[in-house]
Every structure is written in structure tokens, then in C-alpha cells.
């Protein structure tokens, strides 16, 4: 029997009466996203308009070339192209070096025999995560500066030359990656350690009976069980391949290494916030977001193709 319109309305009313409180609670995060995420997105139009400091974005005149003037300008701007290259390079290297690090650390921690030692190690390892990059940059100067840095002073006393950790582009990239790993490795193990606890202990018992060693356990039980977590995090990380942190490269950078340290966020800061070219930098920001979304979708599709669940 087909439901009448009145029936449907009644069941709807029942449903709402029953669950209204849940919807009410949901309205708070929804309002948050609308006010702080979606309404600000209307300002993306600045990328297509001639920015004026005193007009609202709705009143600003359209930019030349059907509004795409600033995108063209960005791609004609060498600084932007270098920033694009540096962003991709630093993020890719970060992924290459930084992504496996917490997995390895989690596996090591997991093999530790004394629970108390494991807990202390874990806490110590994720402490640096709570330091801001400004503080880390200050520490880096104290440690790595060519004449007054602790490490170079020690090297000099031992008769070696200073290593230009911060003042040579190639070394700087290494320092940048190292500090990134140092800061985040402990924190990023948390999610892997959580995944490790959910592995069925019977698997290990069975393998022990079969005479498997530690390495074999890791290879045939632990890693395969971690696979979905690893894939999910990899997708999320790939979504960030073109996004760029600001404080990390900015705080660590100096005039000698800007050929590798100028990333997109620094470009935006320099041209937009300091040089008042807001239209240009909004265009750059929009471009960056679009690429990130494409990467996210592509990575997700790829993961599904390989039989994983993906993130949606």
C-alpha cells in the first residue's frame, strides 16, 4: 500500500520529535563550518578582481582577461614558479623521509619489553611536537650556526671545519627535514601504536607455535595489519603535497637559502601581506587548494584501485 502524504508527514513529525535534540547538537558544528569555512570562501572572488583596500569584495571591479589576469601574472612570475618548485620538493622529501619514520618508531616501541621504559620513551619522543617552530628555529641557530653554534664549535675544537647546516641550500634542506622529523615523529606514532593494539594476539601466538622470529612477525603480521592505517595517512598526506606550512620554512630560512626555502606560503606573505598584492596571492592560494583537492581525489581513487577502503 502506498503511503499517503499525511502518513509521511506524521512519520516525519515523529522522527523529528524523537531525534530533535541530536539535530540541535549538530547545528552547532554546522554553524561553525558555515560561518568560519563557507562564508569566508566567498572571498575567493578577490582572485578574479582588482583588490581595493576600502571596497568590499562584492564591489571590486573585475580583473582583466576575463578575471584571470592574476593567474596569468602568477605564472609569469619567476618567484612564484620557484616557490611552486620548492613547495613540491620540500613536501615530497618530507613525505619520503618523514612518512616512514613514525612507522619504524612505532614498530620499535612495540617490540620493547619493559612497559615503563616504553611509556617514557614515547612521552619523550612526542614532547617536541608542542614546541613552536619559532622556538625550534632559535634552538637550531644555537646548535647549528657556523661559528657560534654548539655543534660547529665542537667540530672546530676537534679540528674539523664548520658544517654549513643553515647557510648552504643543500645542507639547509637536510636540516629542515631533520628538524621536521625530530618534531613530529613521536606525535605521529600515536595513531600507529593505537592500530597496533588492535591486532589480534592470537596471530602472534599461532606464529610463535610455527616458529616465526621477530622479523617474520613484523613482516607477516604487524605490517599487513597496519596497512589500512598507513594507506589512509598516506592519502591524507598526499592531499597536502602542495599545501605549505608558513612558520617552519619562514622561521628557519635566511637570506642565503631563499633559493630553496621560499615556498608558496612565504610568497603569499611577501607579495600579499607585505606588498599588498592581495589579488595575486589569492589567485595563488586558490590554485594551491585546487591542486591539493585533485591530489586528494587521485590518491583516494588509487587506493581503492588497490583494494583498500580509501577515506570515503
Amino acid at each position: 500500500m502506498e503511503k499517503t502524504w499525511a502518513d509521511r508527514r506524521r512519520s516525519m513529525a515523529n522522527y523529528i520529535r524523537k531525534y530533535w535534540s541530536l539535530y540541535l547538537m549538530l547545528s552547532i558544528p554546522l554553524a561553525y563550518f558555515i560561518i568560519f569555512r563557507y562564508i569566508p570562501m566567498t572571498y575567493i572572488q578577490i582572485a578574479f578582481k582588482r583588490y581595493s583596500i576600502i571596497q568590499s569584495p562584492w564591489e571590486m571591479p573585475w580583473a582583466a582577461n576575463n578575471g584571470f589576469e592574476y593567474f596569468l601574472r602568477a605564472f609569469r612570475n619567476l618567484d612564484f614558479l620557484y616557490a611552486l618548485r620548492n613547495t613540491l620538493m620540500l613536501n615530497f622529501l618530507d613525505l619520503l623521509a618523514g612518512f616512514p619514520a613514525p612507522i619504524i618508531l612505532a614498530l620499535l616501541l612495540n617490540e620493547l619489553a619493559f612497559p615503563r621504559f616504553k611509556r617514557i620513551t614515547q612521552s619523550v619522543a612526542y614532547m617536541p611536537h608542542f614546541l613552536s617552530w619559532i622556538i625550534i628555529a632559535g634552538m637550531a641557530k644555537q646548535l647549528f650556526a657556523p661559528t657560534s653554534g654548539l655543534i660547529n664549535i665542537a667540530l672546530n675544537r676537534m679540528g674539523f671545519d664548520s658544517i654549513p647546516f643553515l647557510n648552504d641550500p643543500a645542507h639547509w634542506v637536510g636540516t629542515y627535514l631533520f628538524l621536521g622529523i625530530w618534531r613530529n615523529v613521536g606525535w605521529n606514532t600515536i595513531i600507529y601504536l593505537a592500530a597496533l593494539t588492535s591486532i589480534n594476539p592470537e596471530l602472534y601466538e599461532a606464529s610463535a607455535i610455527d616458529g616465526a622470529g621477530r622479523m617474520q612477525n613484523i613482516r607477516y603480521i604487524t605490517l599487513p595489519s597496519l596497512r589500512p592505517t598507513i594507506i589512509t595517512l598516506l592519502i591524507l598526506n598526499l592531499g597536502h603535497i602542495l599545501s605549505s606550512e608558513f612558520d617552519r620554512p619562514f622561521a628557519l630560512s635566511n637570506p642565503l637559502v631563499n633559493s630553496v626555502s621560499n615556498v608558496i606560503s612565504i610568497f603569499v606573505y611577501r607579495y600579499g601581506i607585505r606588498g599588498l598584492q592581495f589579488s595575486l596571492t589569492t589567485a595563488v592560494g586558490l590554485f594551491q587548494s585546487v591542486i591539493c583537492v585533485i591530489f586528494l581525489f587521485a590518491a583516494n581513487a588509487l587506493a581503492k584501485r588497490f583494494g583498500e577502503r580509501g577515506i570515503w
Binding site: 618567484d79 635566511n254 637570506p255 642565503l256 631563499n258 611577501r270 607579495y271 607585505r274 606588498g275 598584492q277
Partner: peptide, 15 residues
């Protein structure tokens, strides 16, 4: 809008 961009380039070049 070029003031700060160019001063920064100058500082980098000189250093």
C-alpha cells in the same frame, strides 16, 4: 607594491 619584494631580493643578493 614592489618595495618590500625588491628590498628583500636586494638583501638576499647582497648576503
Amino acid at each position: 607594491g614592489m618595495g618590500t619584494v625588491l628590498s628583500e631580493k636586494r638583501n638576499n643578493l647582497l648576503a
